[in-house]
Nucleic acid binder design. Structure first.
Lengths: 249, 249
DNA sequence: CGAAACTTTGACAAACGTCAACACAGGTGG
DNA sequence: CCACCTGTGTTGACGTTTGTCAAAGTTTCG
C-alpha cells in the first residue's frame, strides 16, 4: 500500500501519514536517516509493502530465501541463531525503526530466526530494488552502508559484554541499552515493560534464566530497580551506569 | 603503485603479478570474489596503495578517522575493542584476503584497534572511491554488501560461542575455524603456528589465559593435539568437531 | 477455571577465575 | 658468548561465580 493521498488534502489523517518514509515518525531512527526530503520520496518507491507478524510468529527463519530487509514499524522482535546441534543464542532485540535481515545478504539465505515478541508490523524493503536504487542514489547507498557498519559495531559491543562482563554487569548494560533506545523513541526510560522472558534475556546475555532472575532480585534488594515480573522501574540508572563502567576484572 | 606492465610482456614476474587484483592469488578470498576478469581491472583502479605494518604496530586505532578499508595481503592481525573503563575484548583475527575497517563506516571513525601480530602488509582501499565506483558497478556493490553481511553472520557465530559454549568447546571451535581458514589459503591444517598469545586467545574466547593453557594441556593429554608453546599439531580434528557439535548445555 | 508457561528462590555442584610459583624462549647488552 | 631480563606459558591450590536441579508461587490464555 502506497501513500496516495491527493494534494488537495494537505491535512492527512495520522494513519496515512505513517505510510510514507518522509512522514514516518521513525525516519530519524530508520533507513531514511540523513536523507533529504526529496530523497525520501524516492525511498518510498522502494518501501511499498507492509507485513504484520503476530506475537510468537516468525518474520523469517534460518535457511529461508533472502529477498528483503525489514524495518520494524511497531512491536518488538528477537533474532536468534541455532547451531546444528541445537545450541541457541539470542543475538539481538529489535524495536521500532530497527532493521532486520542484514544477515541474509551474504548467501541469499537467512542465517537467523526473527521472532515477534508481540504483535508487530514491518516495512518490507525489497533488497534487489534497494541495490538498484542505491546505484543512482549516493545518499541512500551511503546511509545503507552506515547501517550495516553500525550493526557490526553493535555486535562488537555484545562480544565485549559476553567476553568480559560478569552477570550483574551484563544485566545492567542490557537494561541501560534498552532504556536508552526506548527513550530515543519517546517512551519512558524508567517504567519499562519487558517484552521478553528471563530465558531470552539469559540467552542474549550468556546466562541461565535463574541467574537473570536472581540478579533482578538482587538489584531490587539494593534499591536499583523495582521488579514486578516484567514490569521494571529503574530507580538508580546512575548505579547501573557505574556497574558497567567499573571493570573489576 | 599501480600495475602498469605493458602488453608486450605477457609473462610477468611473480612480484608484479601480485600487485593487481586480477592476478592476486587471494582474489578468491578477498573483495574480488565473484567478479569477472573485466570487472577486476576496474577494481584495480581502486586498490592503488599498499601499506606495511610491523609486528606489534597498529593499522588503525579506535577513534582514528576512517577513510579506507584494508585487505590483508600478508601477515596476521587482531582486532580489539576497549571500553572507556579499560575492558578489552579481541573481536577477531584476520589473515590474508580478509578485510579490516568495516566498523569505521558507521561514524567515519574507527571503533576498534587493528594490531599486526606479525610483520604484515595490506592493500589500502579508499572508501570514498569504493562507494563511487560501486555506483557504476553493480557487481562490486553486491560483492561488498555480501562481505559486510558475512561479517555480521560471523559475529553472530562468535556470540553463539561466547554465550553458549564451555571452555573446551570454545577452544575446539577456535582451532577448527583457524585450521579451516589456513587450509583455504593452502597452508597445513594440522601443523599450525599460532600467531597470538594465550591471553589474546582467551580474550577472544571470553576465558582467562590460564584456562586456555589448561585446556590446551588437556587436549594434549587426551591425544587430540600436540602442543609445544605456539606450535600446535592437530591430531584428531574429528574429536574437536564432535566436541563443538555436541551441545551438553 | 484450569493448564501451561513463566518466575522466584533455595541447596548444592561444577566450571572457571585468582593468585602464586616456576619454567621456558627470545632478545639485549656487557 | 653468556648472563640477564622480559614476556610468555604451565601448573597447582583455592575461591567465586554461575549453573543445575527442584519446588513452589504467579501470570496468561484458551
Amino acid at each position: 500500500m502506497q501513500n496516495s493521498t491527493p494534494h488537495s488534502t494537505p491535512i492527512r489523517p495520522v494513519e496515512s501519514l505513517q505510510v510514507a518514509c518522509a512522514s514516518c515518525n521513525l525516519r530519524e531512527l530508520c533507513l531514511p536517516l540523513g536523507l533529504s526530503t526529496n530523497d525520501l520520496d524516492r525511498l518510498d518507491t522502494l518501501v511499498n509493502r507492509r507485513r504484520t507478524v503476530p506475537k510468537g510468529e516468525q518474520l523469517f527463519r534460518s535457511g529461508d530465501n533472502f529477498a528483503a530487509l525489514y524495518a520494524v514499524r511497531t512491536g518488538f522482535f528477537k533474532t536468534s541463531v541455532t547451531s546444528e546441534d541445537g545450541r541457541d543464542q539470542v543475538t539481538g532485540f529489535q524495536m521500532a525503526g530497527e532493521l532486520l535481515g542484514l544477515d541474509g545478504i551474504s548467501t541469499d539465505r537467512h542465517h537467523c530466526d526473527a521472532t515477534a515478541l508481540e504483535d508487530s508490523s514491518v516495512c518490507v524493503i525489497n533488497y534487489a530494488d534497494l541495490e538498484s536504487l542505491s546505484q543512482h542514489f549516493t545518499a541512500l547507498q551511503h546511509s545503507f552502508h552506515k547501517i550495516m557498519s553500525r550493526e557490526i559495531v553493535r555486535d562488537q559491543g555484545v562480544m565485549l559484554l559476553l567476553g568480559s562482563m560478569r552477570a550483574e554487569e551484563r544485566l545492567a548494560a542490557f537494561l541501560l541499552n534498552l532504556t536508552e533506545r526506548l527513550e530515543a523513541r519517546g517512551f519512558s526510560g524508567t517504567a519499562v515493560v519487558l517484552r521478553m522472558t528471563r530465558e531470552e534475556i539469559g540467552s542474549y546475555l550468556g546466562l541461565k534464566l535463574e541467574t537473570v532472575s536472581r540478579t533482578f532480585s538482587k538489584f531490587q534488594d539494593e534499591g536499583l530497580l523495582e521488579v514486578k515480573q516484567r514490569q521494571i522501574r529503574v530507580l538508580r540508572a546512575d548505579a547501573l551506569q557505574q556497574m558497567v563502567a567499573n571493570a573489576t576484572r
